[in-house]
Design a protein around this nucleic acid. Structure first.
Length: 175
DNA sequence: TAAGTGATCTCT
DNA sequence: GAGATCACTTAA
C-alpha cells in the first residue's frame, strides 16, 4: 500500500472497508526480512460508538483509544486471556470503528491467525505500513474458485438482537 | 460441552 | 481491590 496517497481505502466506514479487504494480501515481515503474504478471506466490521458489539460502545478507554484515532492503524488486544485479535482502524477520522481480520487463506480463526504470524500487543497503535512489519497489499478480489458470502458476526450475542443480527461479516468460501 | 486464561472494566 | 466479562481455542 503506497504511502502518501490522498485517499486510502481504509478512510471509509468499517462496513465499506471490511468487504474491500477480501482478497487482499496481509503481509508480515518476519525474522531476516522474509515476507509472508496471506490472502484475507474473512473479516468483520465494528461500526462506531453506537455499535453495541464494538469495544467503542462504552466510550474511550485505555484499551480502545486507538480506535478513536486516525484510520490505517492496527488495533490489537488480548481476548479471553489467550488470543490476540488483529483489527484495522477505519474512518471516518476520529470515528471509532475497525475491521477484525478473522481469517486468511490457510489460517482460519482470529486467534490462530495472530499466533501464526506472531502478532501481539507490539502492533497495537502501529500504522499499517511495510515499515511497521505488518501491512496490506493488492486489490479487493474474489479469486477463481471462491465465492463471496455475507452474514452475522461471530460471538456477539451479548450486543442485543439488533446489533448481533447485523450482517457485518464477510468471507470467501471455496466453491 | 466446558475449561482455560488474564487483561480490562465496573462496581465497592 | 474484588468480581464479572470477554470480537476464542482446544480437548473431550
Amino acid at each position: 500500500m503506497e504511502k502518501g496517497k490522498i485517499e486510502q481505502f481504509w478512510q471509509k466506514p468499517a462496513q465499506v472497508v471490511a468487504p474491500a479487504l477480501l482478497g487482499r494480501w496481509l503481509c508480515r515481515r518476519g525474522r531476516g526480512g522474509k515476507v509472508t503474504r496471506l490472502r484475507i478471506i474473512e473479516v468483520e466490521a465494528y461500526c462506531g460508538p453506537r455499535d453495541r458489539a464494538s469495544h467503542a460502545a462504552r466510550g474511550m478507554t485505555p484499551r480502545t483509544r486507538v480506535m478513536f484515532g486516525p484510520p490505517g492503524v492496527w488495533y490489537v488486544y488480548l481476548c479471553y486471556g489467550v488470543h490476540w485479535m488483529l483489527n484495522l482502524v477505519t474512518g471516518p477520522q476520529g470515528y471509532p470503528s475497525a475491521v477484525l481480520v478473522r481469517g486468511v487463506e490457510g489460517v482460519v480463526g482470529p486467534g490462530r491467525l495472530t499466533r501464526r504470524l506472531k502478532i501481539g500487543k507490539a502492533f497495537d497503535g502501529q500504522a499499517c505500513t511495510s515499515g511497521a512489519g505488518l501491512w496490506i497489499e493488492g486489490r479487493e478480489e474474489t479469486p477463481m474458485g471462491w465465492r463471496r458470502r455475507r452474514g452475522p458476526r461471530i460471538g456477539v450475542d451479548y450486543a442485543g438482537k439488533y446489533w448481533a443480527g447485523k450482517h457485518y461479516r464477510w468471507w470467501l468460501e471455496a466453491e
